[in-house]
């Protein structure tokens, strides 16, 4: 495509008004870009349609919590965890509560809140305890959310 030196207006002087832009046909390069755009929007539409078709009105009840690591710092013991949504529903203002238990007794609780947990997504958070979680039984559970 080394035709950049050629001014198409010269050949079409009869068609163009004086100094006005006229309408050269869409160039092959532009068609390539247009094709890309068509492909992209078609892909997005197709994906959304198939997602909408298989989307069931699910309730974000299925969530997994995995403890990633536990660290001791100046403020206390931080337990970093991952929470994963296994449903197609979004949980908003999700509250996750962590408990340190000794037998039946709850020694300490900590809470973390997530603005959003989107469908099939994971988010990370941390709980800060004053007691060492290693010495107790640690339970982390989501306790509530709102529907967006």
């Amino acid at each position: 495509m080394a035709t950049t030196g050629d001014d198409p207006r010269v050949n079409e002087g009869s068609r163009a008004n004086d100094g006005a832009e006229h309408a050269p046909p869409t160039s092959p390069l532009e068609w390539v870009a247009a094709g890309l755009g068509a492909l992209l929007i078609a892909a997005m539409i197709v994906y959304m349609v198939q997602y909408a078709l298989k989307e069931h009105s699910s309730v974000p009840g299925e969530m997994d919590v995995t403890v990633m690591e536990s660290r001791t710092g100046g403020l206390g013991h931080t337990v970093r965890f991952q929470i994963r949504n296994r449903t197609a529903a979004t949980a908003a203002t999700l509250i996750v509560r962590g408990e340190l238990r000794s037998g039946d007794q709850v020694v300490e609780t900590a809470e973390a809140q997530f603005d959003y947990l989107p469908p099939y997504s994971e988010r990370f958070g941390g709980l800060i305890f004053q007691n060492d979680p290693a010495r107790y039984e640690l339970r982390i559970v989501p306790t509530g959310y709102s529907e967006p």
């Binding site: 035709t3 950049t4 030196g5 050629d6 001014d7 198409p8 050949n11 046909p25 532009e30």
Partner: peptide, 28 residues
């Protein structure tokens, strides 16, 4: 940009005259 219509006709005899790529890229 030099105007050289003769070369265009020599290399691309049967093609319609397109908007050149440079102005398309500027538009992009």
């Amino acid at each position: 940009m030099t105007v050289d219509t003769g070369r265009a006709e020599a290399t691309l005899p049967d093609r319609p005259v397109y908007e050149d790529n440079r102005s398309f890229l500027v538009g992009l």
